[in-house]
């Protein structure tokens, strides 16, 4: 039977400019899926998956950034990521851009 595990990385994070989630280790997982639920969103939210070999230094994963324009849930798959994962969340726009986010990360062996 495959193993799977869900972590709630943020429950109600307020992003006014940029937020990178805490490093999360998934060395056992062959695939992972982010779920980002924007409870509130003003402006455009850009979500960039980042990877790291040591949990200290990061680079973008081989996954295109996800753009979100309206509140709701969005999700994307990540594979071949190595050990550490995080997501960088940026909001932009002309009129006080902000997002209220809940972020899940699901790993599966």
């Amino acid at each position: 039977m495959r193993s799977t595990m869900t972590a709630v990385l943020e429950r109600s994070a307020l992003v006014r400019d940029e937020l990178a989630t805490e490093p999360y280790e998934l060395p056992w997982a062959g695939e992972a899926r982010f779920f980002v639920q924007a409870h509130e969103l003003t402006g455009t939210l850009e979500l960039t998956t980042e990877i790291s070999p040591d949990g200290l230094t990061w680079c973008p994963a081989d996954t295109p950034p996800v753009r979100v324009e309206t509140p709701g849930m969005t999700s994307w798959l990540v594979t071949g990521f190595g050990q550490w994962l995080r997501v960088r969340c940026r909001v932009s726009g002309d009129d006080a851009p902000a997002a209220r986010l809940r972020i899940y990360l699901v790993g599966k062996s």
């Binding site: 595990m5 709630v8 429950r11 999360y24 998934l26 070999p53």
Partner: peptide, 26 residues
């Protein structure tokens, strides 16, 4: 409503499974 969770008990972080890797030795 997770906004009703006590402020000091809302963010205890999810446990992880680690193989204890580090920047210097892997």
């Amino acid at each position: 409503d997770l906004g009703t969770v006590d402020e000091h008990m809302r963010d205890f972080r999810p446990p992880q499974l680690s193989n204890c890797s580090f920047f210097d030795v892997g």
